[in-house]
Amino acid sequence: MTSTVRTRNRTSDADADADAAPRLPGAWRLGLIRGALEIKQFFRLREQVIFTFAFPIVFLFLFASIFGDDMANTGSTASQYYVASMIAAGIMSTSFQSLGISIAIERDDKVLRRLRGTPMPPAAYFLGKIWLVLVTGILETAALLAFGTTLYDVQLPSGISGWLTLGWLFVLGITGCALLGIAISSVPKSAKSATSVVVLPFLVLQFISGVYILIDTVPGWMLNIGSLFPLKWLCQGLRGVFLPEAAAALEPAGSWEYGRIALVLGAWCIGGLLLCLLTFRWKSRSDG
């Protein structure tokens, strides 16, 4: 009888200790904490910060200087045309390229393997990356617009509808590109090959999606390939935000096609998530 009472007392004490123990934060809160850590680490790398924010600004400066004030058939200036292209390229750079390379390096350095062995929910890791991409994407876009409006008189959206369009294009574009970046991070066999594997398709997509070349001069078969990916549609939507309505005649369909853009970018968000779930690996191939 005495031993039974003692056993019950020990069980009660263990239950009381379990109830008194603090609960671990949820995935959302841990994601915020992880995001703050990712952002802090990003800004500690001075060269990376300079390159990230300078990339679209330098290209806008080059194109505006080369093509001058007027661009045939656009009804606008070169700076006005290329600010849309550079925002799109910047969004994909801070999401697809950045995540594709950084996650591959973290996997090769066994950072992902160690994180997977902690009580942190896997979702918190990805939320941290999304917060990093969102903050850097917003800051990069803001810096580009400030540069364009200050030096090249780039005209910002005049009404609330233009800003709303810019907002949903930004959210859908950066989400789809970020998920695609997470998915492609599993392709490189090592950290050494990550840059080559990720940068090459990104560079090709910029040329066939109308980032560097006027959309009406890109060969049709290239545009068809570019249409399979989000960058082409993101560029098209942003041109609709920053260019006059007459410039829509340059587009293959003769209009901005906002409905179709939303469907394609939304499909990439869903498809990118499925790709991540099917292909993402926490360990490098050498670890088995």
Rank of each mutant, 00 (worst) to 15 (best):
R285Y: 13
G272Y: 03
W256V: 06
L144E: 01
S196F: 13
I103H: 03
Y258L: 04
A54W: 05
P252Y: 07
L203F: 13
V218W: 02
V264Y: 02
V199R: 11
S161W: 06
A248S: 13
V187A: 11
G181I: 11
I208D: 04
A72N: 11
C269A: 10
V83W: 00
C235R: 00
I130G: 01
E140R: 07
V111K: 14
M1K: 12
G90L: 02
I103T: 05
L180E: 02
G159L: 05
S196Q: 10
T141H: 02
R46C: 03
Q48S: 12
L37N: 13
A178P: 08
I33E: 15
G137N: 01
T217K: 10
V49E: 07
S3G: 07
V111E: 06
T94V: 14
P122I: 00
Q48C: 02
K129Q: 05
G162H: 00
R8Q: 13
L32K: 06
A262M: 15
R8A: 15
G220H: 15
A104Q: 07
C269N: 03
S76T: 13
E38M: 08
L205I: 04
P25F: 05
K283R: 14
I101W: 06
S79Y: 06
D19V: 13
A123N: 08
L24F: 12
V135R: 08
G162A: 00
I225D: 08
A16S: 11
S79P: 07
A253T: 13
L243I: 12
T141M: 15
R113M: 12
M222K: 02
S93R: 13
T77W: 03
L205D: 00
L214N: 09
R285F: 11
F53V: 05
R29W: 04
S158P: 05
A84D: 01
A104S: 14
C177V: 12
W256H: 03
N9R: 12
W28T: 14
I57W: 02
A249Y: 01
R46L: 08
L169W: 01
T136R: 09
G266A: 09
K129A: 05
I215T: 14
E251Y: 05
Q155F: 00
E251K: 09
A194C: 06
T52K: 02
M92S: 01
V204S: 10
I215E: 07
D19Y: 06
